[in-house]
Design a protein around this nucleic acid. Structure first.
Lengths: 232, 232
DNA sequence: CGCTATGTTGATCCATATCAATAAGTGTGG
DNA sequence: CCACACTTATTGATATGGATCAACATAGCG
């Protein structure tokens, strides 16, 4: 752990309000490692030995069943992942792999649970974090069950648009094949969905996206705060 | 609130370890009401004014978008629902309606949050509950994204089988149309999926289900603890 | 600079949705 | 208690969104 990294971790909502001594205990127990792309960090079913924090790069959460695989989420700096398994002392429900070269901090689950037991501020921060995660998955479920694939793509692009501060031109931060899986469709189908959105003023070239008629796209996509707002 | 109901609530994991005085504060502020079937209790987007507890009957959580509707979960006694919105002081992401005549306890969110702030045991119980909810939704997402509709039905029946303590004959506790929506398919498609499972020794007549060849059904369904275990 | 993974496009197939008709419950009021 | 209305379940016919297969283009990358 580089000393200069510590303030950034301390700045996370999850660790911000906890006792300084407890925070230092956690940090002392932490491992830090830089991984190349496409390295598996955890495998679903394994025991949750560490709470992971993505410090740089990005991590894909995915799941398998019966030979099939689907992308569940992308974790970007700086945030933790699979907190629930750590706290519950339960097996991971998802696997995780680096999408790009990534710096990962690992806090032993045992230490996290110990601090959780004695630090009340930390316990409450965990609640906030888990409530956030929960609501986020509920939104994803609504997205998948209530929308067609073209609608999901349209709304995904609108979410990117908002996350980039309202830019009408931006870059996709994720491979298309991964995006397809994340949105519950095949790469071929994503290609076609993107083409279908040309009719609503969306131009995609490689990873760069341009929305030429925002109103038209929104009229089609019908974004809802109860599905698409990343906070709320 | 009938005095004889209080021990049952106290017995819930969520309230079991909290301070007696705080528990009494919550109970004092509670409303109790019996609703007929098909009554809307909450509507998505509304502010979360109450934490609800299903005391008897059952409640369906569902969501709408753009004129479409999908069932998200069924809540059975005795458990709470939409804790995350209450704690985060955020709008509900799902609507809820009674499926049958139901006795519902409502704790004002404000009181729940007040107790949450001062009662550390309660705060930790909230964590456990939210972690459980989170993992449960993740499993549902995996079920939907990784399995075909027939596979989902097969695994649903196996879950019923386990929840009834291993019975090979049991009753569906939910209307078929609701089940279809819950599993992300149409009622017609559910009918056909059930018919397709005859090949694996499943006989459904009305609401009664009989599994004649468990091994065969399991071989087809390939249940996984990481998707189908209700605890874990 | 070639190799391999990714992305696109077209053709086809299949799972699931939709539409339609009927049957079977379920509840209600006379 | 039955007749009627209404909702739910089933079945068949058809339509369609999305998957699969195949071919090619493209872009990273060693």
């Amino acid at each position: 752990m580089r000393p200069e990294d510590i303030p950034a971790i301390r700045g996370l909502d999850l660790f911000h309000d906890m006792d300084e001594g407890n925070f230092e205990d956690l940090i002392r127990a932490a491992y830090v490692q830089t991984f190349p792309p496409q390295v598996d960090l955890i495998t679903e079913g394994d025991h949750a030995d560490f709470l992971h924090i993505v410090f740089s790069g990005s991590v894909e959460l995915y799941a398998r069943w019966n030979g099939r695989e689907t992308s569940m989420a992308t974790v970007r700096p700086i945030s933790t992942f699979i907190l629930a398994a750590t706290i519950k002392d339960a097996p991971y429900l998802m696997s995780a792999r680096t999408s790009e070269k990534s710096r990962i901090i690992m806090l032993p689950s045992l230490d996290v649970r110990t601090v959780f037991e004695k630090d009340n501020a930390f316990a409450r921060a965990v609640v906030t974090e888990l409530a956030q995660c929960y609501r986020s998955v509920v939104k994803k479920t609504k997205d998948i069950k209530l929308r067609s694939s073209v609608e999901r793509v349209a709304n995904y692009l609108l979410r990117c648009h908002h996350q980039t501060g309202g830019a009408l031109e931006f870059e996709l931060q994720i491979e298309k094949r991964r995006l397809a899986s994340l949105l519950g469709m095949t790469p071929e189908n994503l290609s076609r969905a993107i083409k279908a959105l040309r009719a609503y003023g969306v131009k995609v070239d490689g990873t760069s996206v341009r929305i030429s008629d925002l109103a038209d796209l929104e009229k089609f996509a019908k974004p809802s705060p109860l599905i698409d707002d990343s906070s709320a």
